[in-house]
């Protein structure tokens, strides 16, 4: 159903961008973590976005498929989804710090491969994308209100 699908797509964008923001925050929080749960230094995580596939079994999508897409719902897929969270396999940094409890025999500590500048840029990017999704949602809402006005 036309505009509700637009709101759904924007909603999926909002949750995907929020997920990216969460992961970026986790990377920043662990920028100095030399020992994770597995005893290894922290590796930065990255979110993989994927275009969401066929419409689900929600009421509106079933209704529009029964109507034969007369409302014009055919062709548009349904937003975005997070396909997975992957670990960045770039090399970990090694710094010389003999006093560190996790230093090896030569006095080197393996630090996470988190670059604060990259994370900050990612954070800004996801925050802006989030805003764009909010604007898209608001436009759809305004349009829908205009349609309801026709009945008044």
């Amino acid at each position: 159903m036309g505009l509700f699908d637009a709101i759904d797509a924007s909603g999926s964008g909002l949750s995907a961008e929020r997920m990216r923001m969460d992961v970026t925050s986790e990377n920043l929080a662990n920028a100095q973590t030399t020992k994770g749960a597995d005893g290894q230094p922290y590796r930065r995580k990255d979110v993989v976005f994927q275009e969401a596939g066929a419409p689900g079994t929600s009421f509106s999508s079933v209704l529009s498929s029964i109507q034969g897409g007369r409302s014009g719902g055919a062709g548009v897929t349904h937003g975005v989804k997070v396909a997975g969270i992957v670990e960045d396999q770039t090399a970990l940094k090694r710094i010389y710090d003999p006093g560190h409890p996790d230093a090896d025999a030569n006095g080197y500590v393996t630090m996470p491969n988190v670059n604060t500048v990259t994370e900050m840029t990612d954070l800004i990017s996801s925050s802006r994308a989030y805003e764009a999704n909010v604007t898209a949602m608001q436009t759809a809402k305004t349009m829908f209100t205009k349609t309801l006005d026709l009945l008044r």
Partner: peptide
């Protein structure tokens, strides 16, 4: 009106996928 609503849907889809590689 219905075409314009569909267009809004397509734009919302594009904005949702602004960070999707290969989209």
């Amino acid at each position: 009106l219905s075409g314009s609503a569909l267009r809004q849907q397509a734009i919302a889809q594009n904005i949702a996928n602004v960070n999707t590689p290969g989209y």
